[in-house]
Design a protein around this nucleic acid. Structure first.
Lengths: 188, 188
DNA sequence: GCTTAATGTGTAAGCCTCTAACATTGGAGT
DNA sequence: ACTCCAATGTTAGAGGCTTACACATTAAGC
C-alpha cells in the first residue's frame, strides 16, 4: 500500500495527463485546475508550482500535441509527391479524429499567442514540414501553396471533429485525401 | 436624462450585443454573463430570464452568425460555377476576418450540439447552399464535393483568424479563392 | 381599474482562479 | 553524516463567476 507522500515525484506530468483526460470528458472549457489537481491527488494550489496559470497547462498540452503531429508527418515517407501529400492530409485528419480533445486544445482552446510563443513556434515548425512536402510538388509559391494545402487538411479536420460535416460518415473516409488529390491535379 | 427603468425594454437584444462585444475584447472564454449584465445595466441574474444559461447566450449569438453567413452566401450571384465558388470561398474568409470573435463563437466556443440543435440545424442549412453551388460544378458526389469545398474555405478561415498562417500576409489575400480554383480545375 | 404573466432584483450556495505565508523534503556541498 | 536551501506541497483567504430561489415591479389584457 503506497503511502501518500508529501512530494508527488512526477506532478507536472501527472497534471498534464489529468488535463487532457478532463478535456476529453468535458471539453476545453470544462477543464479546471482544481479538478486536475484533485485527480493527481494533490492540493488545489499545487499546480501553480509548475504552471503559471490555467492557460499555461493547456499550452503545455498543446505543445505536446504539436510534437506528436510533427512525428506523424515525418513518418510519412511516400515517394510520389502527390501520394505523400494525400497521406499527410489523411494522417492529419486521423490525428484529429483519434483525439479530438487534443486537437481542440491545440487549435480551439483560446491559448494566447503572445503569452505562449513557444506553442506558436512549434506550430510554425510543423508548417515548415508541409512547405517542404509541397515544394516537391510545385517549386513555385511553395509557402503559399503549403498554406493552401494545410488549409484543406485543417478544414476537414476541424469540421470533422466538430461533427459539422453532415455528409461525412465514418466509412466515407479520406475526404481530405480526395480533396488534396483534386487540388494538386489542378495545379497546372 | 433617461431614468433607469425597472424594465429594460430590449434586454435580450442588448445582452446579445454585449456578449459579442465581450468576446471581441476577451475571447469566448473571457465572456461572462455577469459582465454582459453589467454592461446592459441590469442585475447579474437578469439574463437568466432570457437565456437558460451562459452557453445559451453564446448559442444565440452563433445562430445570428449563421444567419449572416447565409446572407453572405446567397448574395453571391456569379454565373460561372467556378467563379461563384471562388467568390463564396473568399467571402467566407472575409466574413471570418471581419469579425473573428463571431466566427469563434460559431465554431470554437464549445457550444454543445445536443443542447442547441437549432444552431447545428442552421449550420446545416448553410451547408445546403454550398451543396447547390457545388452541384452546378459537378453533379457527381455533390454532397461529398461540397464537404471538400467547405473544408477548404473553412480551413483558410480558421487558420487565418488564429494567425496560424505564417505566410498569409494581408496583401496575399484570396488564398481560399486560389485553392478553390486549383481544386475545381482538378475535378476532371 | 384589476389581475396576472413577464421581467428584474437580492441573496446565497458552491464552484473556480490565483496570491501569500507556511511546511516538508531531497540533495548538494561540506 | 550533517546542514542548509531550493524545490515542491499545503492551508487560508480574497474575489469572481454561475445559477437557483424567493421577492418586487410593471405592462397588458380583461
Amino acid at each position: 500500500m503506497k503511502r501518500a507522500r508529501y512530494h508527488h515525484g512526477d506532478l507536472r506530468n501527472a497534471l498534464l495527463v489529468a488535463t487532457i483526460e478532463l478535456v476529453r470528458e468535458r471539453g476545453a472549457r470544462g477543464f479546471s485546475v482544481s479538478e486536475a489537481a484533485r485527480r493527481a491527488g494533490v492540493s488545489i494550489t499545487a499546480p501553480y508550482r509548475h504552471f503559471a496559470d490555467r492557460e499555461a497547462m493547456l499550452a503545455a498540452v498543446a505543445l505536446r500535441g504539436f510534437t506528436q503531429l510533427e512525428e506523424v508527418f515525418t513518418s510519412r515517407t511516400e515517394q510520389d509527391p502527390v501520394e505523400r501529400l494525400v497521406a499527410i492530409a489523411d494522417a492529419y485528419v486521423a490525428f484529429a479524429r483519434a483525439d479530438p480533445a487534443l486537437f481542440e486544445v491545440m487549435f480551439a482552446s483560446g491559448i494566447d499567442k503572445e503569452s505562449h510563443p513557444d506553442v506558436l513556434a512549434r506550430a510554425y515548425r510543423v508548417q515548415e514540414l508541409l512547405v517542404d512536402a509541397v515544394g516537391k510538388l510545385t517549386p513555385d509559391d511553395r509557402e503559399r501553396r503549403a498554406a493552401e494545402f494545410w488549409s484543406i487538411a485543417h478544414g476537414v479536420a476541424a469540421l470533422a471533429t466538430e461533427d459539422r460535416l453532415r455528409y461525412l460518415t465514418a466509412e466515407a473516409g479520406s475526404l481530405a485525401g480526395t480533396a488534396v488529390r483534386a487540388w494538386s491535379a489542378g495545379l497546372t
